[in-house]
Design a protein around this nucleic acid. Structure first.
Length: 370
DNA sequence: TACCCGTGGGA
DNA sequence: TTCCCAAGGGT
């Protein structure tokens, strides 16, 4: 029998304590297989993409919708990008949807519709970075891959009382996880670390009294909330703009599609001015009516909407008008029929514009999309 | 490395 | 109200 060093015993004990806790306290999630069962790699991949920088609560409904619309990766690959963007609308970070679609097609064409089990191959797929590749390899294929997300970063930073701030500390965190990884249950270990971070080792209110790793934790001597160390955040700039909702007598509204790349890439929007930096008090009248898609319409101000993006805040003046009878959609524009409004690929900011316009016309707000 | 890229909920 | 941030990836 080989002799183990003290630190090896400690690490083994840590992993065991974590898995014992997980077997008792694991979260029941729609994409999670029953204990002892291997989940569908497609389902794991789909959930992991959706969960990137997104809360479990926000993902659940979208996950169920996607799985109902496209039960297998072949189905998703056969769908149009437009359909996928429509289904993704409201979830944010739309490059994920474009990469999701491209990835499904790659899996079908280059891998025969079967997800590759190796982390190195998963990593080459669009939208699959270091975290997601490890997560799929570990959870769907039980490969001993280190899985480091925001939860794990926080848990490990506290366990080690890491003074190195993120993101510089990532290498050290990754090495630690790789070191304590139990090779018999790598999938459960990855999910256990994330569950612990989400439910016990929480950012603001860590539950140290019920934590299965408390006796291993270096941050317990002080305030665990001091970890991980993070760089100061930058101020969020403010931008101003105008949006124009032109409505035909039959209820159709004028819309256009945003460029494939960049902010809200590929999504549907109303016509509008550019969004320029300015003060909240500045009235965008000069960039308002004169930028309208139809000069002869009788535009009136319906109100303003506020929206916050990752790196700037936006206030849009919403102008509405009835389309003149002789007006046809300008280059790049199209009429969105009233019956198609609910399923359109409007991002949340455009849903706010729509709601503002409907209210101005005294029309009922649309029901929540299915 | 630093920046871009959404959204909604909780404290 | 304001701030924080949640299973990150691409460039």
């Amino acid at each position: 029998m080989t002799r183990k060093s003290k630190s090896e015993i400690g690490k083994s004990s840590l992993s065991k304590s974590l898995l014992v806790w997980y077997d008792r306290a694991r979260r029941d999630l729609p994409w999670r297989a029953a204990p002892g069962e291997r989940p569908d790699p497609y389902a794991v991949w789909l959930s992991e993409i959706m969960l990137q920088q997104t809360t479990v609560a926000a993902v659940k409904a979208y996950y169920e919708k996607f799985l109902a619309l496209w039960p297998r990766v072949d189905d998703l690959a056969a769908a149009s990008l437009e359909q996928v963007l429509q289904a993704w609308a409201g979830l944010g970070y739309y490059s994920r949807a474009r990469n999701l679609h491209a990835c499904a097609q790659r899996v079908v064409v280059e891998h025969g519709g079967v997800f590759p089990p190796r982390e190195s191959e998963l990593r080459r797929l669009p939208g699959v970075g270091p975290y997601t590749a490890g997560a799929i390899a570990a959870i769907a294929f039980d490969q001993p891959a280190p899985v480091v997300d925001g939860n794990v970063e926080r848990v490990v930073a506290r366990l080690l009382a890491l003074e190195t701030p993120l993101p510089a500390a990532k290498k050290e965190i990754f090495a630690f996880v790789a070191d304590i990884l139990p090779h018999d249950r790598p999938g459960d270990f990855a999910q256990a670390m994330m569950d612990l971070g989400a439910t016990v080792c929480a950012p603001r209110a860590p539950g140290c009294l019920i934590c299965p790793l408390a006796r291993f934790c270096a941050a317990r001597g002080g305030d665990p909330r001091d970890f991980p160390k993070k760089p100061p955040k930058k101020a969020r700039p403010f931008r101003r703009g105008a949006a124009f909702v032109l409505r035909r007598a039959d209820g159709a509204v004028l819309a256009r599609r945003r460029p494939e790349r960049g902010l809200l890439g590929g999504m549907t929007e109303f016509f509008g001015s550019d969004w320029r930096e300015g003060r909240a008090e500045d009235w965008p009248e000069k960039r308002g009516r004169e930028r309208a898609p139809c000069a002869t319409a009788n535009w009136r101000l319906a109100g303003e909407i506020d929206h916050v993006f990752t790196h700037f805040a936006l206030r849009l003046a919403v102008f509405v008008a009835a389309a003149p009878a002789d007006f046809s959609a300008p280059e790049g524009g199209f009429w969105l029929a009233a019956d198609d409004l609910r399923a359109a690929a409007f991002p949340s900011v455009m849903r706010k514009v729509e709601a503002c316009a409907l209210k101005a016309w005294d029309l009922p707000a649309p029901a929540k999309p299915a």
